[in-house]
């Protein structure tokens, strides 16, 4: 008997077997990420899912911290999402960055402000942009590096947040180089001292290694 075109009852609706799971994961991601513009974010979520890219989802809920300057801008959680999505390539096309930025409901003005800090005409060097974004998160150089370590680390959350020395040295010298107030010799001596210090720790720099040192 041919299937009738007319719908008589709910049993005639064929529910794709994968649909419930997709919707469940989508909802969980939305609750966890708490996007400001749900529609824009949903588009980003599904286009990433369709293309097999990392999803624009925070790993865990980010509590609105009181010290956060503006609630609409970049947060450590969002930067981590961006890093997860874009860090595969060394240089990222400006357009791709713009799309990803927009899909996380981040203000475009902030992106332009960040890009103005360095010359990114032919592609955005991701680690440089990442360093600039970290400097937007934390006011001082040390707090920017702290954010960078916490995002880049493979340690479990709340751990020592260690990153390889080379990565740390690159980010630190890049940010210090942009800051005209810091003389180059000081940066070099700081990095040399740090290298000696972490040589017996498998060349991994933790947050405690440099933030405590400053307080001495």
């Amino acid at each position: 008997m041919p299937v009738p075109d007319v719908m008589f009852c709910a049993q005639q609706i064929h529910v794709p077997p994968e649909l419930p799971n997709i919707m469940k994961q989508f909802t969980k991601a939305a609750i966890r990420t708490q996007p400001r513009d749900v529609l824009q974010w949903s588009y980003g979520y599904f286009s990433a899912l369709a293309n097999g890219e990392p999803l624009p989802v925070k790993e865990r809920v980010e509590m609105p911290v009181a010290t956060q300057k503006n609630d609409s801008g970049l947060t450590p959680g969002l930067l981590k999402v961006l890093h997860k999505q874009l860090a595969k390539k060394e240089t990222v096309a400006l357009k791709e960055l713009q799309i990803k930025w927009k899909n996380l409901c981040l203000p475009v003005e902030q992106l332009h402000d960040l890009l103005r800090l360095d010359n990114f005409d032919d592609g955005v060097a991701w680690m440089k942009f990442f360093a600039l974004a970290c400097s937007a998160l934390g006011g001082s150089l040390v707090s920017s590096m702290k954010h960078a370590c916490e995002i880049l680390t493979e340690d479990p959350e709340g751990g020592a947040a260690r990153v390889p020395y080379d990565t740390f040295a690159f980010l630190y010298s890049y940010l210090a180089g942009l800051d005209e107030e810091i003389p180059q010799e000081k940066t070099e001596s700081f990095l040399a001292a740090l290298k000696e210090q972490v040589a017996r720790k498998e060349d991994m720099v933790g947050v405690a290694d440099f933030s405590v040192k400053r307080m001495d």
Partner: peptide
């Protein structure tokens, strides 16, 4: 919309759906 159109690839259909809404 997914139930109505029965697309073979749900994620790309959903992406298109949200793009249209945008």
């Amino acid at each position: 919309e997914v139930l109505r159109n029965q697309p073979p690839d749900i994620p790309s259909f959903a992406a298109k759906y949200f793009e249209n809404l945008l």
